[in-house]
Structure formats: C-alpha cells, structure tokens
C-alpha cells in the first residue's frame, strides 16, 4: 500500500486519484502508525515551506518519512514535499526542514514571472538509467509546475541524484532520483498522461500495484 501523507495541507484528492489511476493501492493516511507500515510513501505539499514542515511535524507523520529514508523504503516527494527534504528554505527562514537531502531551497533567480506556473519541458539528465523517466520514450517530457522557490542540490546538474532540470531563465531542478528516494518539483498528478506514466513507474518500482 502507498500512503499519501495527509497532514492537513491542501487538496490531496488529485494525488490520491492519480495514483489509483496509475494502478496503485493508494490511500490518504493521517495515522503515523499506518504510515509506518505502508510499503511506500508519497509526501505532497502545497503552500509555503514553513507551513508544510510545521504541519507535517505536528501530524507526527514526519517519523515515517525519516524511517523511509533510513530503510530505503520508496518515497516520492512532490513540490513542497520535495523542498521539505532539504534542511531549510529561503522562503521560511528559521524553520528547519527534514534535512534528508543536501543543498539549498532558494527563490528562483530568474527574470521570468514568479511563480513559474506553467507546463515546462524537462531535460532528462540520465535517460538510460533513470527509472523515474523510464516509462516513456519518444514523448517530449512536459510537466506542470507551480512554484516560486526551487531546490538546488549540492553540485547542481553534476550531482548524479539530479534526474531532470527545466529552463526558467536558468536551470531549475525538476526532479531528484536517489535510489528509493524520488522527488519532483512539478506535479505529476496534474501533468496528464506523462504524469500518470511517472506515477506508474513509482508504483512498479515500489511493487505496490493494486491486487
């Protein structure tokens, strides 16, 4: 079972329904024990970094995220759920993130409008080895973004965990794939057929298809 961590922030309906559509046995989970026993986790997040981290810690569901990271349980962070994996964000100074990934979360240094609220085309950095982006060849990888802040992992595109970037007046980290830890700045649950294909890859990787 995939637990979509429901810590009281925003609308998770789309994330849950998209995972179901992608063939997962997925459900919204508020109980930390249930999250701990899940086979895989999805950590969503909308709004501000500080509000999300605070709500996640208050819910107690952050323990399941740390546990997944330690035990290599499949984990997919989406949008702020990606940014929260870092130790802090310029958006919410003084509020510690989860500190699972190394790097910084900064306002996108761009002359373009913020937020980036649009479909954007990815550059997939390791197409031959990426499981995350292994589900579709031939189709141009366009995904839907809504964000003003972005993650800058140490090493940038030279960091082997950075799976994809997009161009928004400069390179913006679009996805990280580090073993069992997957994270996207874009919203796969709002990115049509290719978003569902990515979620299907996660479901298959996690071995948690519906019975």
């Amino acid at each position: 079972m995939i637990a979509v961590l429901d810590y009281g922030i925003g609308n998770l309906r789309s994330a849950e329904k998209a995972l179901l559509q992608a063939g997962a046995d997925a459900r919204l989970v508020t109980d930390p024990d249930e999250a701990a026993s899940a086979d895989a986790l999805v950590l969503p997040g909308v709004g501000s970094f500080g509000a999300c981290v605070t709500a996640l810690r208050n819910s107690g569901l952050h323990h399941a995220v740390y546990d997944a990271a330690e035990r290599s349980k499949p984990l997919l962070g989406i949008c702020i759920g990606f940014q929260m994996l870092f130790s802090e964000s310029e958006e919410s100074p003084g509020i510690p993130g989860l500190g699972i990934l190394d790097g910084a979360v900064l306002q996108i240094p761009t002359k373009e409008k913020l937020p980036q609220m649009q479909w954007n085309k990815l550059t997939i950095l390791h197409p031959d080895t990426s499981l995350m982006f292994g589900g579709f060849s031939g189709a141009e990888p366009w995904f839907y973004f809504v964000h003003s802040y972005a993650a800058y992992p140490i090493g940038g595109v030279e960091n082997p965990a950075v799976a994809a970037v997009c161009d928004y007046g400069g390179n913006v980290t679009a996805a990280v794939e580090k073993g069992s830890l997957w994270a996207t700045q874009f919203h796969p649950e709002k990115s049509g057929a290719l978003g569902l294909a990515l979620l299907s890859q996660f479901v298959r990787f996690a071995g948690v298809g519906a019975k």
């Binding site: 589900g135 141009e140 049509g192 057929a193 290719l194």
Partner: peptide, 11 residues
Amino acid sequence: VRPPAYIDRVR
C-alpha cells in the same frame, strides 16, 4: 507549445 502526449506513445 506542449505537444499532445498520447497514451499510446507511452510505453
């Protein structure tokens, strides 16, 4: 523009 991504183009 984003080209239509047909399901049948998805492996």
